[in-house]
């Protein structure tokens, strides 16, 4: 269960990016999670909400995009879906895969910033430099987010 560590790392990266660009709030964080990355998206969603609390990302939603594992043969150049557990020898010639085309992703693909400050029920954000915010209702920007972006 290292999803909490992963979630904290995500929030840390988002905080850095927000500070660098001067954003006040975070609406949506989109993560690409490879099938072979060893991270469980459901668990990550749970931990993400906790990790965001009291930060500029408080109230942000997490979208995870699953990336299937794909490998390519070193001998015959055939490509195949690895599945999980991964099959890393060629279903055609039996040779070892030269490597993975995809499947090990664990990256922040995109962040959708909100002009409204962090929505936090717990009071001001904890990072220095950010103006204290009072708890407030949902940002009007939320209405613009398609419902599938959970």
């Amino acid at each position: 269960m290292h999803e909490m560590s992963v979630a904290l790392a995500v929030v840390g990266q988002v905080e850095d990016a927000a500070r660098a660009a001067g954003h006040a709030g975070v609406d949506t964080v989109t993560l690409r999670v490879g099938e072979l990355a060893g991270v469980v998206p459901d668990s990550l969603h749970f931990c993400f909400d906790l990790a965001c609390e009291g930060t500029i990302a408080a109230g942000a939603r997490l979208v995870t995009e699953r990336v299937p594992g794909r490998a390519r043969c070193g001998g015959c150049a055939r490509e195949w879906p690895t599945g999980l557990p991964p099959r890393l020898s060629c279903p055609g010639c039996g040779g070892a895969a030269a490597g993975l085309l995809s499947g090990r992703e664990l990256e922040i693909a995109a962040v959708r910033w909100s002009d409204a400050p962090a929505r936090t029920a717990a009071g001001p954000v904890r990072k220095a430099g950010a103006p204290p915010v009072q708890a407030s209702g949902p940002s009007p920007d939320l209405a613009a987010v398609p419902p599938e972006e959970r």
Binding site: Q13, A17, A21, E107, V111, R112, S114, A144
Partner: peptide
């Protein structure tokens, strides 16, 4: 109102 950045981080 919202802006999206591709971070690829």
């Amino acid at each position: 109102m919202c802006r999206t950045d591709d971070l690829r981080t």
